[in-house]
Amino acid sequence: MTLLSRLGFLLLKAVPTVFIVVTLSFFFVQLAPGDIADYIAASSGAATEEGTSALRESLGLDRPILEQLLHYYGTLAQFSLGQSMRFDVPVTELIAARLPSTLLLVGTSITLALALGIAAGAVMALNAGRSKDRLLSAVTLVLYSIPSFWIGLMLIIVFAVQLGWLPTGGAEKIGSRASGFSYLLERGRYLLLPSLALASYYIAIYARLTRSSMLEVIRQDHVRTAVAKGLNRWQVSLRHIVRNALIPVSTMAGMHIAGILGGAVVVETVFSWPGMGRLTYEAINARDYVLLLGILLTSAFVVIIANILVDLLHRVLDPRIGARA
């Protein structure tokens, strides 16, 4: 099967998934005891029974739940996620404003996690049982045990408060006029701590995974063949061990994208990063369920797209897969 036809197949397969995710998420959000009308009524202070029900009627909240669901499908079919009840703008607009910076944060974190994780895992596996392995194993196990928001706070204490090297939060200097390389550098200064905080847990995961899958590969016969060819240690390690160990790592990397996206909610809060995570937080405080539903669906959508990309990458990495399908 070619990559293109596989892509088509995956997109087709995603359609029912999206449909079920929409329905399921809709019902999850319906579990809420109160609704936005109650909230607005309560926050405006002087609400009457009639005023609240009038509001409910205008938002369509008084109709039966299935009708609301069908109405929501209709909205989605027009590529809209509905109107935010709290901010009174289309949800898509709110999300579009925040999604890029979350993708930037998540993308940087995944790249960092993969690069550092695979490197650390390779060093551990090639020195398995020796002191280098023990030390790195201990370090990764500690990283694996630290909550990302706490490591974020520790990074702030050390690098922003004590040393003053990096900013404590935000995405860029307000009113900055920097351009070109210095602009990138400045963005980088803001990006570094949050992406490290978000990546730390996944660095540990990929390092441990790379180590164990390399040890698995080292035992395989084809590595012995490679040595028997007269290849040196580096050629054997890179071409025949690391290369093959990347296959399970890529599968796992795909499975963790949803997790990293979830982790961004907390890390963005710690660093006041203006992304989807902060938007979620704001939506929760405002009880804006339409917005919350929109965020949930957008994240699921991002995960689906990412999984499709990982699936295709996996096929490139492992030529056996196409034959089996």
Partner: peptide, 15 residues
């Protein structure tokens, strides 16, 4: 010195 192993399934690198 060349060597041939038992299991041709696994002696070649699958990728």
């Amino acid at each position: 010195i060349g060597i041939v192993f038992q299991e041709p399934q696994t002696t070649l690198n699958p990728v």
